[in-house]
Nucleic acid binder design. Sequence first.
DNA 1: TGTTGACCTTCCAGTTACTGTAAGCCCTAT
DNA 2: ATAGGGCTTACAGTAACTGGAAGGTCAACA
Lengths: 127, 127
Amino acid sequence: MNIRQAAELSGLPVKTVRFYDEIELVSPERASNGYRDYNANEVHKLKFLNRARSLGFSLDDCRQLLSLYEDQNRTSASVKEIAQVKINDIDIKLAELKSMRATLKTLVNSCHGDSRPDCPILEELGR
Amino acid sequence: MNIRQAAELSGLPVKTVRFYDEIELVSPERASNGYRDYNANEVHKLKFLNRARSLGFSLDDCRQLLSLYEDQNRTSASVKEIAQVKINDIDIKLAELKSMRATLKTLVNSCHGDSRPDCPILEELGR
DNA sequence: TGTTGACCTTCCAGTTACTGTAAGCCCTAT
DNA sequence: ATAGGGCTTACAGTAACTGGAAGGTCAACA
């Protein structure tokens, strides 16, 4: 199947699918005309990538997960470990964002937001 | 003052301070030897940038905030608006991360995490 | 005075994960 | 035969730095 259909089935943009071939994440055979020719298994892997990416796994993570996915001898522990590390990363990010939000909220609340030039937000940022 | 001291006072890495000069965010005069020569006001702006960046403002946001900061005729409303948009951005990111975390948590909990090869995480990702 | 070592300069490449664009085949239908 | 759409590659650009190489400058010490 051509790249367009593989893209549609996997939910990824064509450009991204091509990119994943370039970096050898999912590399289909080529048809006689040079077109990429995706099979069901490759589409499956593309879907896998789409889902894993949207869960915040980096392409490096994905490469690991994909090789685990294809390795009949992997242990479920090795997969669980990657996922657990990712959860910890997310927790750190959540804490950072919450703190940022709290600070911004304080600033916004203290700013009268009218046409006068004095602004507590800028004053605070400048300190 | 030389770049090293400006960096230390502002809390930014030297490389970053140089970068901010390159993109004309904070561009000091040059001494006769060609060295960057920072004054107190520029250090102040660097601190401002450090703080704004850590609150999640993009360099583009920062450029706006900085010009508002220096504009005696700005209104506080214009600043408040930028901050409010940023809070909304953060809320969206928070929601996304929470959803990611929940999914990952479910996966991790359902995975026995031992030496057996079958793994619900990979099964789920593959679907 | 010579020399070391820290500090400064510019320029270039690399990072992440794509996205956009241009030039140019290929295929199908009319 | 030609028009359109889809496919190819290659290159540039994005955000915000970071690292490294090659080389100029400065202050201190022997």
